[in-house]
């Protein structure tokens, strides 16, 4: 096979790639930010000990964990507007779906970390007169969050990649822009290889960081 690589035409559209990458980063970090908030609230609901609140949180989690993200995006963009009798901006639908999706997973990660902390830690905090809120905030959460940091980063890496699905509802992210450039240049190999390279450049440091943190946590345990 002697394909003639030629990035010249593709690189002429570097601004599109850069813009797409920027959009990808925004949706990733935006949804991670909202997802963390949703995850904490859901986790609190799950641990609240209130039957109804716990049930609602569970239903939400399972709905979002048991359907593909692609299906969720299509549903929120095409089906949800009919339900509420209006229309929804594709960017809003994308951010909403991504946030709810990752929030469901974060909630489970946080919950796992919190319940993994030894009962003796709760007792020691209680024994010096801490309220359950003080104990959670000062004693349990710091240990739990440290323990789940690698899982949290891994889920966030997956989220970065998942963001590429928003292109199906025409949000102009990196994947969308690669397709646009391909359409203009008829250079699929270069367009899509460049896109893949950009994803790797963004995510490799993150996965390495997760591994490094995991190793360090093992040592300090």
């Amino acid at each position: 096979m002697n394909y003639n690589w030629d990035f010249h035409a593709v690189l002429q559209s570097w601004d599109l790639f850069l813009w797409g990458l920027w959009i990808t980063i925004i949706y990733t970090f935006g949804s991670i930010l909202f997802g963390v908030v949703i995850g904490f609230l859901t986790c609190a609901a799950r641990l609240s000990g209130l039957w109804g609140v716990n049930a609602i949180a569970r239903v939400y989690q399972e709905m979002f964990r048991c359907t593909p993200l692609l299906v969720q995006l299509l549903w929120f963009y095409y089906a949800f507007p009919l339900l509420i009798g209006g229309s929804i901006d594709n960017r809003v639908a994308a951010l909403l779906t991504l946030s709810l999706y990752v929030g469901a997973f974060y909630a489970e990660i946080f919950r796992g970390g919190i319940v993994s902390i030894d009962k003796g830690q709760h007792e020691a905090a209680a024994a010096i007169g801490m309220s359950s809120w003080q104990s959670m905030y000062r004693i349990i959460l710091p240990q739990a969050m440290k323990r789940v940091l690698p899982s949290f980063i891994n889920q966030s890496v997956i989220q970065f990649k998942n963001t590429s699905l928003v292109s199906v509802i025409s949000v102009a992210d990196l994947a969308y822009m690669a397709a646009v450039v391909n359409g203009q240049t008829y250079r699929p190999l270069e367009s899509y290889t460049l896109m893949a390279g950009l994803y790797i450049a963004m995510l490799l440091p993150l996965t390495q960081a997760a591994d490094w943190i995991e190793r360090r946590l093992k040592v300090s345990d």
Binding site: D118, G120, Q121, E123, A124, A125, A127, P142, Q143
Partner: peptide, 11 residues
């Protein structure tokens, strides 16, 4: 209270 397994705060 002092416990059998110490329960110091490891962090």
């Amino acid at each position: 209270m002092v416990f059998q397994h110490f329960n110091l705060f490891p962090h």
